[in-house]
Design a protein around this nucleic acid. Structure first.
Lengths: 85, 85
DNA sequence: CGTGTAAGGAATTCTGACACG
DNA sequence: CGTGTAAGGAATTCTGACACG
Protein backbone atom coordinates (compact mmCIF):
# COMPACT_ATOMS: atom_id res chain seq x y z
CA UNK A 1 0.00 0.00 0.00
CA UNK A 2 1.16 3.46 -0.78
CA UNK A 3 -1.34 5.07 1.56
CA UNK A 4 0.24 7.34 4.13
CA UNK A 5 -1.45 6.35 7.35
CA UNK A 6 1.31 5.06 9.63
CA UNK A 7 2.44 7.31 12.46
CA UNK A 8 6.08 7.66 13.38
CA UNK A 9 5.78 5.51 16.47
CA UNK A 10 4.71 2.52 14.39
CA UNK A 11 7.48 3.22 11.89
CA UNK A 12 9.97 3.08 14.75
CA UNK A 13 8.67 -0.32 15.77
CA UNK A 14 8.73 -1.64 12.24
CA UNK A 15 12.22 -0.38 11.44
CA UNK A 16 13.92 -0.49 14.80
CA UNK A 17 15.03 3.11 14.31
CA UNK A 18 14.40 6.17 16.47
CA UNK A 19 12.11 9.10 15.70
CA UNK A 20 15.20 11.23 15.45
CA UNK A 21 16.67 9.12 12.68
CA UNK A 22 13.45 9.01 10.71
CA UNK A 23 12.90 12.76 10.95
CA UNK A 24 16.48 13.36 9.91
CA UNK A 25 16.05 11.36 6.72
CA UNK A 26 13.14 13.61 5.92
CA UNK A 27 15.21 16.70 6.67
CA UNK A 28 17.69 15.39 4.12
CA UNK A 29 14.90 15.03 1.56
CA UNK A 30 15.06 11.26 1.37
CA UNK A 31 11.51 10.57 2.48
CA UNK A 32 8.30 12.57 2.18
CA UNK A 33 5.61 11.68 4.70
CA UNK A 34 2.26 13.42 4.61
CA UNK A 35 0.98 15.53 7.48
CA UNK A 36 -2.27 15.59 9.39
CA UNK A 37 -3.98 18.93 9.84
CA UNK A 38 -2.23 19.10 13.16
CA UNK A 39 1.17 18.49 11.64
CA UNK A 40 1.74 14.87 12.57
CA UNK A 41 3.68 12.75 10.08
CA UNK A 42 2.05 9.84 8.27
CA UNK A 43 4.05 7.22 6.38
CA UNK A 44 3.22 4.47 3.89
CA UNK A 45 4.50 0.91 3.92
CA UNK A 46 6.67 1.88 1.00
CA UNK A 47 8.13 4.66 3.10
CA UNK A 48 8.93 2.11 5.78
CA UNK A 49 10.79 -0.08 3.29
CA UNK A 50 12.65 2.93 1.98
CA UNK A 51 13.65 3.98 5.48
CA UNK A 52 15.06 0.55 6.15
CA UNK A 53 16.98 0.71 2.87
CA UNK A 54 18.34 4.15 3.72
CA UNK A 55 19.57 2.97 7.07
CA UNK A 56 21.24 -0.05 5.47
CA UNK A 57 23.03 2.18 3.00
CA UNK A 58 24.14 4.56 5.73
CA UNK A 59 25.70 1.71 7.65
CA UNK A 60 27.55 0.78 4.49
CA UNK A 61 29.27 4.12 4.43
CA UNK A 62 27.04 6.17 2.13
CA UNK A 63 25.97 9.61 3.28
CA UNK A 64 22.55 11.16 2.82
CA UNK A 65 23.69 13.36 -0.02
CA UNK A 66 24.97 10.43 -2.01
CA UNK A 67 21.76 8.57 -1.33
CA UNK A 68 19.73 11.48 -2.64
CA UNK A 69 21.81 11.36 -5.81
CA UNK A 70 21.14 7.66 -6.16
CA UNK A 71 17.44 8.16 -5.67
CA UNK A 72 17.28 10.79 -8.35
CA UNK A 73 19.22 8.74 -10.88
CA UNK A 74 16.57 6.39 -12.19
CA UNK A 75 17.49 2.73 -12.01
CA UNK A 76 20.05 3.48 -9.30
CA UNK A 77 21.43 1.07 -6.77
CA UNK A 78 18.49 1.43 -4.42
CA UNK A 79 15.81 1.13 -7.06
CA UNK A 80 15.37 -2.56 -6.47
CA UNK A 81 14.65 -1.81 -2.83
CA UNK A 82 12.32 1.04 -3.45
CA UNK A 83 9.81 -0.42 -5.88
CA UNK A 84 8.04 2.38 -7.72
CA UNK A 85 9.35 5.38 -5.84
CA UNK B 1 -1.50 -5.83 4.77
CA UNK B 2 -2.71 -7.31 8.01
CA UNK B 3 -0.27 -5.31 10.08
CA UNK B 4 -1.93 -3.26 12.80
CA UNK B 5 -0.30 0.12 12.49
CA UNK B 6 -3.07 2.55 11.60
CA UNK B 7 -4.29 4.87 14.35
CA UNK B 8 -7.95 5.65 14.81
CA UNK B 9 -7.68 9.11 13.30
CA UNK B 10 -6.53 7.67 9.99
CA UNK B 11 -9.26 5.05 10.14
CA UNK B 12 -11.79 7.84 10.51
CA UNK B 13 -10.47 9.51 7.40
CA UNK B 14 -10.44 6.30 5.40
CA UNK B 15 -13.93 5.22 6.43
CA UNK B 16 -15.69 8.51 6.95
CA UNK B 17 -16.85 7.31 10.36
CA UNK B 18 -16.30 8.82 13.79
CA UNK B 19 -14.05 7.54 16.56
CA UNK B 20 -17.17 6.83 18.56
CA UNK B 21 -18.55 4.50 15.90
CA UNK B 22 -15.28 2.64 15.48
CA UNK B 23 -14.81 2.15 19.22
CA UNK B 24 -18.37 0.96 19.52
CA UNK B 25 -17.84 -1.78 16.94
CA UNK B 26 -14.94 -2.94 19.05
CA UNK B 27 -17.07 -2.85 22.19
CA UNK B 28 -19.50 -5.14 20.37
CA UNK B 29 -16.63 -7.53 19.57
CA UNK B 30 -16.75 -6.98 15.83
CA UNK B 31 -13.20 -5.69 15.43
CA UNK B 32 -10.03 -6.33 17.40
CA UNK B 33 -7.38 -3.64 17.06
CA UNK B 34 -4.05 -4.00 18.81
CA UNK B 35 -2.87 -1.59 21.46
CA UNK B 36 0.35 0.33 21.97
CA UNK B 37 2.00 0.15 25.39
CA UNK B 38 0.17 3.35 26.15
CA UNK B 39 -3.19 1.94 25.19
CA UNK B 40 -3.71 3.52 21.79
CA UNK B 41 -5.56 1.46 19.20
CA UNK B 42 -3.85 0.27 16.02
CA UNK B 43 -5.78 -1.09 13.04
CA UNK B 44 -4.86 -2.98 9.88
CA UNK B 45 -6.09 -2.27 6.37
CA UNK B 46 -8.20 -5.37 6.71
CA UNK B 47 -9.76 -3.88 9.81
CA UNK B 48 -10.57 -0.77 7.82
CA UNK B 49 -12.35 -2.80 5.15
CA UNK B 50 -14.22 -4.71 7.82
CA UNK B 51 -15.31 -1.51 9.52
CA UNK B 52 -16.68 -0.19 6.25
CA UNK B 53 -18.53 -3.48 5.73
CA UNK B 54 -19.96 -3.34 9.25
CA UNK B 55 -21.25 0.16 8.73
CA UNK B 56 -22.84 -0.83 5.43
CA UNK B 57 -24.61 -3.73 7.09
CA UNK B 58 -25.82 -1.54 9.94
CA UNK B 59 -27.37 0.88 7.50
CA UNK B 60 -29.15 -2.06 5.92
CA UNK B 61 -30.92 -2.82 9.16
CA UNK B 62 -28.67 -5.43 10.76
CA UNK B 63 -27.67 -4.96 14.39
CA UNK B 64 -24.26 -5.66 15.89
CA UNK B 65 -25.40 -8.90 17.48
CA UNK B 66 -26.58 -10.29 14.16
CA UNK B 67 -23.34 -9.20 12.54
CA UNK B 68 -21.35 -11.03 15.18
CA UNK B 69 -23.37 -14.16 14.40
CA UNK B 70 -22.63 -13.75 10.70
CA UNK B 71 -18.95 -13.33 11.34
CA UNK B 72 -18.77 -16.49 13.40
CA UNK B 73 -20.63 -18.59 10.86
CA UNK B 74 -17.93 -19.41 8.35
CA UNK B 75 -18.82 -18.54 4.79
CA UNK B 76 -21.37 -16.04 6.04
CA UNK B 77 -22.78 -13.11 4.14
CA UNK B 78 -19.88 -10.83 4.97
CA UNK B 79 -17.17 -13.31 4.22
CA UNK B 80 -16.65 -12.01 0.73
CA UNK B 81 -16.00 -8.57 2.16
CA UNK B 82 -13.67 -9.71 4.86
CA UNK B 83 -11.08 -11.72 2.96
CA UNK B 84 -9.25 -14.01 5.38
CA UNK B 85 -10.67 -12.82 8.68
C1' DC C 1 -29.26 0.25 19.72
C1' DG C 2 -26.03 3.12 17.68
C1' DT C 3 -24.13 7.47 18.07
C1' DG C 4 -23.21 12.42 19.87
C1' DT C 5 -20.92 15.15 23.21
C1' DA C 6 -18.37 17.55 27.09
C1' DA C 7 -14.62 16.33 30.60
C1' DG C 8 -10.22 15.43 32.20
C1' DG C 9 -6.26 12.98 31.70
C1' DA C 10 -2.60 10.34 29.45
C1' DA C 11 0.12 8.95 25.41
C1' DT C 12 2.09 10.55 21.17
C1' DT C 13 4.33 13.70 18.28
C1' DC C 14 6.30 18.27 17.11
C1' DT C 15 10.00 21.88 16.74
C1' DG C 16 14.39 24.07 17.73
C1' DA C 17 18.51 23.71 20.12
C1' DC C 18 22.75 22.04 22.25
C1' DA C 19 26.03 18.23 22.11
C1' DC C 20 29.56 15.05 20.10
C1' DG C 21 32.76 14.43 16.60
C1' DC D 1 27.38 13.86 9.47
C1' DG D 2 24.15 11.25 11.82
C1' DT D 3 22.17 10.76 16.13
C1' DG D 4 21.11 11.53 21.31
C1' DT D 5 18.73 14.27 24.58
C1' DA D 6 16.05 17.55 27.63
C1' DA D 7 12.25 21.19 27.03
C1' DG D 8 7.87 22.90 26.38
C1' DG D 9 3.95 22.80 23.81
C1' DA D 10 0.38 21.03 20.69
C1' DA D 11 -2.23 17.29 18.52
C1' DT D 12 -4.16 12.80 19.23
C1' DT D 13 -6.40 9.32 21.71
C1' DC D 14 -8.42 7.25 25.92
C1' DT D 15 -12.15 6.14 29.32
C1' DG D 16 -16.59 6.59 31.57
C1' DA D 17 -20.76 8.93 31.61
C1' DC D 18 -25.02 11.25 30.31
C1' DA D 19 -28.24 11.79 26.47
C1' DC D 20 -31.68 10.38 22.90
C1' DG D 21 -34.77 7.02 21.57
Amino acid sequence: MDKKVISIGSVCEMTGLTERQIRYYEERKLIFPERTKGGNRKYSFEDVELIKAIYRQLREGQNTFELKQLMHSKRGAMTKLREVE
